[in-house]
């Protein structure tokens, strides 16, 4: 194999690992409700797990000052005043792992008040590690070829 051909092969394999759609086992969508307590500077619970297609309801309760909750990728948010409960309902249509974060300045560590919403399994992570593995094998073999 010429080096150029094997490079092409590895790039194609990388694209396959990164983008080929996986069969999704059909799971009946459910309704899920989470009660999240927000306090400086964390959410509890801070990691949510749902299935794609689920209808998710988040009840945000603030235990100290005003906090918010903004979901990356979904671009939706709510705000909760101290002691009050704010409710957000949405359909988890996009699969993947998304950060949610406070969007009301609430104190020093506010920019780092972050939680995680996992919709289905975090396939992009596994795909990324797969591509990394492939890249390493590719580089190692390319050296073997040269010597």
């Amino acid at each position: 194999m010429t080096p150029r051909f094997s490079l092409l092969l590895f790039v194609m394999a990388g694209l396959v690992v990164a983008f080929v759609p996986l069969p999704v086992p059909p799971i009946a969508p459910q309704e899920r409700t989470f009660r999240i307590e927000a306090g400086q500077f964390a959410y509890s619970p801070s990691e949510l797990k749902v299935n794609p297609g689920d209808t998710v309801t988040i009840q945000l309760v603030s235990t100290d000052v005003v906090h918010g909750l903004y979901v990356d990728g979904y671009d939706i948010s709510i705000e909760a005043d101290p002691g009050q409960t704010a409710t957000l309902t949405f359909t988890a249509g996009k699969a993947g792992s998304f950060r949610f974060r406070c969007n009301v300045t609430c104190g020093a560590m506010h920019p780092f008040m972050i939680g995680k919403l996992n919709v289905g399994s975090n396939n992009w992570l596994y795909r990324s590690i797969g591509v990394a593995l492939l890249a390493v094998v590719g580089v190692t073999l390319s050296l073997k070829q040269k010597t």
Partner: peptide, 8 residues
């Protein structure tokens, strides 16, 4: 950037 409040 993680979700772990205790660490923060």
């Amino acid at each position: 950037l993680g979700p772990w409040g205790t660490l923060k």
